[in-house]
């Protein structure tokens, strides 16, 4: 794992070009590298969402692996069925029992944290050998930027408008990793493609472990977050450098931060690039900073040491 560098990333492109994802789409980067990391021997069950809609305009598909679109709420349930069928077919000798086939469920934040949560919980609890990947662009982007359970505090969306009274989303983001870990699954991790080798290492680890595993992928959205397309990776990197996003894993209950940030940048660096936070006052930015400080304290407590450092002001 440690030998993986940018130069040694797999060359096979399993997500074909020509799909209709936006210029600078974070989810497109997630999907491309997810497939590179997983290889060909996978079966994907994909919930309704941006990626599903934009990669499979009939009669075309961008997926060079077996892929099924399901409804909005049931990717985990369909993946459970596929996994059970593969098991049965192996037992009956229709599939070579030694062949490693990984079943992967993919959902956005709406399809995972909101409407698909029940199916996800069932899948994790029953212990299916499925890797669930949540690509989190922090709102319902496919239907026109409505808030979801993963929308961060103060973000503007069409259903949390920003005006004098409402200041965008007024609730905190749902902690999906903790929900997944509460099912006592063997592996759960957050990934951010700005840290690509960490991204690959975790996807591969999650795929190799037998049983339900959960990956939470950071996925910036150009139209939904309102920023210039060329800033996608920069924003992803800033999310980590400001402590808004922490790259960590929970393996058999053991918590480990994989991208330590000795000196944090102020959250403003991250917020100011995005139109969805453009309405924030200085005071509100300070409030976000305090919230992130609290979250970082919590992470450091879990880690048992200071892995995410204090904010360094210029």
């Amino acid at each position: 794992m440690s030998t993986l560098t940018i130069a040694t990333l797999p060359k096979d492109e399993l997500l074909a070009p020509g799909h209709r994802m936006c210029q600078g789409c974070g989810a497109a980067i997630v999907m491309r590298h997810l497939l590179k990391a997983l290889g060909k021997d996978i079966i994907i069950a994909h919930a309704t969402g941006c990626v599903e809609v934009t990669t499979t305009l009939y009669p075309e598909t961008a997926w060079r692996v077996p892929w099924i679109h399901v409804a909005f709420e049931n990717a985990a349930a369909v993946a459970s069925g596929i996994e059970a069928a593969v098991k049965a077919l192996k037992r009956k000798g229709f599939i070579n029992p030694d062949k490693k086939i990984k079943v992967v469920a993919i959902g956005g934040d709406g399809g995972t944290a909101d409407i698909g949560l029940q199916a996800l919980s069932g899948m994790l609890e029953r212990g299916h050998d499925v890797l669930y990947v949540l690509y989190d662009n922090e709102a319902y982007m496919n239907t026109g930027i409505q808030r979801s359970g993963a929308t961060p505090m103060y973000a503007w969306t069409t259903t949390t408008p920003a005006g004098k009274v409402w200041r965008g989303e007024w609730r905190r983001k749902k902690d999906m990793i903790s929900i997944a870990v509460a099912h006592k699954i063997p592996y759960a991790a957050t990934v951010n493609f700005a840290y690509i080798t960490d991204f690959y290492a975790k996807i591969r680890k999650a795929a190799e472990i037998e049983g339900p595993t959960f990956i939470h992928a950071f996925s910036p959205c150009v139209p939904g977050w309102r920023y210039e397309p060329h800033l996608t990776v920069k924003i992803a990197k800033l999310a980590v450098q400001t402590g808004i996003w922490v790259n960590y894993e929970v393996e058999k209950g053991v918590f480990r931060v994989t991208t330590p940030v000795p000196k944090r940048l102020p959250v403003e660096e991250y917020l100011k690039l995005q139109g969805r936070f453009a309405h924030l006052t200085r005071e509100e930015i300070e409030r976000v900073q305090r919230m992130v400080d609290e979250d970082v304290d919590y992470i450091n407590k879990l880690a048992g040491t200071t892995v995410i450092g204090p904010v360094e002001r210029k």
Partner: peptide, 14 residues
């Protein structure tokens, strides 16, 4: 949210 009804929701949210 669901297309094509979401803008009823968005309008009422405002």
């Amino acid at each position: 949210p669901i297309t094509p009804s979401s803008d009823i929701f968005e309008y009422l949210a405002r």
